[in-house]
């Protein structure tokens, strides 16, 4: 039974890791096609990608959009969670539902809706419109995480702070936010990664300045190339670094 379990786990792990291993391995491929046999290693594709100005600009755009949209989503979500967790408002279930709703709608539909509205209003597709779209998809996430993290324990601490003369904003930034730090960081980093990796909204709502996934997409159209493996591996590396930082900063601290 135990051996069977380990065999199963190994098999699934191979399945899960197969594409990642192939991706990273053939980013070091020497010849022009990222398929067996492996004839590397070489770093020339990384050099090529890092020297590609369009690619680097897309990377910068992605980072900027991710950071700004994640901050906006976090702020909006934090205030909303605070407002709804503190007192029972009339229609608070409805408001909660409304805030969560975008989570259940395909990104494609959100993108299409925004595209039609922006078209109607005459807004040009840009990084800004993409950012707006990313706030729409990340706001429910931030709200849900923070709302779930707000408990009685913290409500009592807020009450105590107000009792001792703190103003609303002081309570929020001196008591609530520090107490919710792990949840805030988790929500922020998740939003950053989701925005950073998001394709369809960025594809429909950008035109000249594009984000990284869109740039990679247009690279795919010219066929298989180890350069795509290289940029894919780089993106993976960045995400892993963020993940490890998150693990070290947020979860280690919250444990102690």
């Amino acid at each position: 039974m135990r051996a069977l379990g380990w065999a199963y786990m190994t098999a699934i792990f191979i399945f899960i890791f197969l594409p990642v291993v192939v991706l990273v391995l053939f980013s070091f491929q020497d010849s022009r096609l990222p398929v067996p046999p492996f004839d590397g290693p070489t770093l020339k594709w990384y050099a090529e990608v890092l020297a590609d100005r369009g690619m680097m600009e897309a990377l910068r755009n992605s980072l900027v959009v991710a950071l700004i949209s994640a901050s906006a989503a976090l702020l909006l979500g934090f205030f909303a969670a605070q407002g709804l967790a503190r007192v029972r408002l009339p229609g608070s279930i409805l408001m909660r539902g409304l805030l969560i709703a975008p989570m259940t709608v395909s990104y494609l539909i959100i993108a299409l809706g925004l595209l039609t509205v922006f078209n109607t209003l005459g807004f040009r597709p840009s990084l800004w419109t993409t950012g707006i779209g990313h706030v729409v998809i990340n706001l429910p996430l931030c709200f849900a995480i923070l709302f779930a993290a707000m408990g009685d324990h913290q409500k009592n601490a807020e009450r105590a702070a107000r009792d001792l003369g703190a103003s609303d904003m002081q309570v929020l930034f001196l008591v609530t936010a520090p107490m919710l730090k792990p949840a805030l960081l988790a929500a922020f980093f998740l939003s950053v990664t989701f925005s950073w990796d998001e394709f369809i909204i960025a594809f429909l709502l950008t035109r000249f300045d594009v984000t990284l996934p869109v740039e990679i997409w247009s690279m795919l159209r010219s066929g298989l190339s180890p350069a795509t493996n290289a940029i894919g591996s780089l993106v993976f590396l960045v995400s892993i670094v963020i993940l490890i930082l998150l693990e070290l900063i947020v979860f280690r601290k919250s444990k102690s």
């Binding site: 909006l76 205030f79 909303a80 407002g83 007192v87 409304l98 959100i110 925004l114 509205v117 707006i132």
Partner: peptide, 27 residues
């Protein structure tokens, strides 16, 4: 207290309405 709480929720609600509900209705 309720008014203040509503003030906290309002920005997120407005955002969701403007960029999610309105586009959906337009669609």
């Amino acid at each position: 207290e309720k008014q203040r709480s509503f003030g906290f929720v309002a920005p997120a609600l407005i955002w969701t309405c403007a960029f999610f509900i309105v586009p959906f209705v337009v669609m």
